[in-house]
Design a binder for these strands. Structure first.
Length: 139
DNA sequence: GCCAACGTTGGC
DNA sequence: GCCAACGTTGGC
């Protein structure tokens, strides 16, 4: 099982909306590296849900509930989407500042490739984020 | 095939 | 609001 982080601007699609929806097709990704990451996601993989621009913090977890398929919002069948379902909110969201200040997290792809919207996370990093967020999940 | 111009993302 | 990073586009 692998781990990932997805970004969303809360003004466009927030964690709260995601929870209310119960499931979401992760569409509109138009970046080659992000597409590779989408294509590598497997059912049941763990995902961190990050609020970019407004909040700048990891706010909850999600899981992959459908593996990559052609993004229905694109004419070009090479662009991919996955479906995600919400897991649990983090009792204490983990901010970008927290992540940068934590030596275990400062090397995250989130930090190294600021503009990548779908990025890999190591299992150590994943557990660390959950732990810092006060999650009672596996971490 | 190079590279300048431009648009977008996202942190500050 | 500004700017750095960086991907894309288009002229040559």
């Amino acid at each position: 099982m692998a781990f990932w982080l997805v970004k969303s601007e809360p003004d466009a699609y927030s964690w709260q909306t995601f929870v209310r929806d119960g499931r979401s097709a992760w569409t509109g990704i138009r970046n080659a590296q992000a597409r590779i990451n989408l294509n590598t996601m497997r059912l049941g993989d763990g995902v961190l849900f990050y609020h970019s621009q407004v909040g700048k913090e990891v706010v909850g977890t999600a899981t992959v509930v459908r593996e990559a398929y052609p993004d229905p919002t694109s004419e070009d069948p090479r662009w991919l989407a996955v479906d995600l379902a919400p897991g649990a909110p983090l009792p204490r969201p983990v901010t970008l500042t927290d992540i940068k200040a934590d030596p275990e997290l400062a090397e995250m792809t989130l930090i190294r490739h600021t503009r990548l919207s779908v990025s890999p996370v190591t299992d150590t990093q994943y557990r660390r984020v959950l732990q810092r967020g006060g999650s009672t999940e596996s971490g």
